[in-house]
């Protein structure tokens, strides 16, 4: 469920980065306030544990497929929400840097989708409410399964929103939702079961570990705090939406701004596609009502009035040439470096 750089616009990526950075700063402050010396090394090795555990695949009985451990939930259960969020962010950063899972710009989205929901929504509002400081096998099971399902549904939905808002991928909102949500329901159930089993295993062996978390990092002691978070989340989503609509509606922000200020769009006759491109993107990028693009066949002729053959061909030729040039420069550099 990793978002990729290639699928998002700077507006969406930037907004989610900002939201995530804010959450990291806030969580780090909270962890610092807990003033538990043991926490930093504990967080580090638990992150490494999640990282390692995610590489162990288990077969899902009867399906022939395999799954692996999620992480956000287990971390929240073992560390409390703030520390868990920081650790989840770290796991995703390392995955982004080393395995190219996602990418750097999409990192904000990924941390938000896979960290924010399990740690700050699911754990305090579902898992903690169900387990309520008195773990039993049944409660852990129920809390984990419901929690994992909710977390993944929210995360998957968030992926859909981000992708659609960015408007790079053509996949329509409704179809994407119908694709993502059921898949993640199944994944959620499996992840919930695994989480419950692992947590129960630890709880049986070292009950005091789960107890310890009960006293620290309790989120939502004050209602305002919870509201602040939800508010932040909603604001981020709205801002991201607005910004990316703006960005994708005006594919070339700079030129758009130039046009705005000069007001002489007609003069740029070699760029005739822009306004109409904006129209197309408005149709494709905005949320629900565009279904499968029936309307487009009618509008198509006027939408692309100026498929300038010359422009396209020179674009391709020029692109290929530039690439070639870049490679030549690279080889030259390498050779001169060897010679030196």
């Amino acid at each position: 469920m990793h978002m990729a750089d290639a699928l998002i616009s700077p507006a969406v990526g930037g907004t989610m980065w900002a939201a995530t950075a804010g959450l990291i700063a806030y969580s780090a402050k909270k962890v610092k306030e807990e003033a538990d010396d043991r926490k930093i090394p504990l967080m580090g090795v638990l992150g490494a544990f999640i990282f390692a555990a995610q590489m162990i695949n288990f077969s899902i009985p009867g399906t022939g497929s395999s799954g692996h451990l999620g992480g956000g939930m287990i971390l929240a259960i073992l560390l409390g929400p703030y520390a868990a969020f920081l650790v989840m962010a770290s796991v995703l950063i390392v995955q982004a840097l080393f395995f190219a899972d996602g990418g750097l710009l999409a990192l904000g989205c990924n941390i938000f989708n896979l960290g924010f929901f399990p740690c700050f929504i699911v754990y305090p509002l579902i898992y903690r409410k169900i387990v309520a400081g008195m773990p039993t096998r049944g409660r852990i099971m129920l809390g984990s399964v419901l929690g994992a399902i909710a977390g993944l549904q929210l995360g998957a939905f968030s992926v859909v929103l981000e992708t659609v808002l960015a408007g790079i991928a053509e996949l329509p909102f409704r179809a994407f939702v119908l694709l993502m949500q059921p898949i993640h329901l199944a994944i959620g159930i499996v992840e919930g079961l695994v989480t419950a089993a692992v947590v129960t295993f630890v709880w049986k062996a070292r009950p005091e570990i789960l107890d310890a978390v009960e006293y620290v990092g309790v989120i939502g002691k004050k209602v305002e705090m919870k509201r602040t978070f939800l508010g932040l989340a909603v604001a981020a989503v709205i801002a991201g939406g607005a910004l990316s609509w703006f960005a994708s509606g005006n594919p070339d922000g700079l030129e758009w701004a130039m046009f705005k200020t000069s007001g002489k769009e007609e003069l740029e006759s070699h760029e005739p596609a822009h306004v109409s491109l904006a129209a197309i993107q408005e149709k494709t990028a905005i949320l629900p009502d565009y279904g499968f693009k029936k309307a487009e066949s009618e509008t198509a002729p006027e939408v692309w009035p100026a498929v300038d053959l010359g422009t396209s061909v020179s674009g391709l030729v020029g692109g290929a040439l530039t690439l070639l040039l870049a490679v030549v420069i690279g080889l030259g550099l390498r050779r001169s470096k060897r010679a030196a």
Partner: peptide, 30 residues
């Protein structure tokens, strides 16, 4: 990264010059 992803979705030829960055870094960095 920001520069690359800020292009509109049909950008193709405009992206090619950006290969200069990875290529130069890979070459100079060995």
């Amino acid at each position: 990264i920001v520069a690359v992803v800020s292009f509109d979705k049909y950008a193709l030829s405009q992206l090619t010059p950006f290969f200069i960055y990875p290529i130069v870094l890979i070459s100079l960095g060995g």
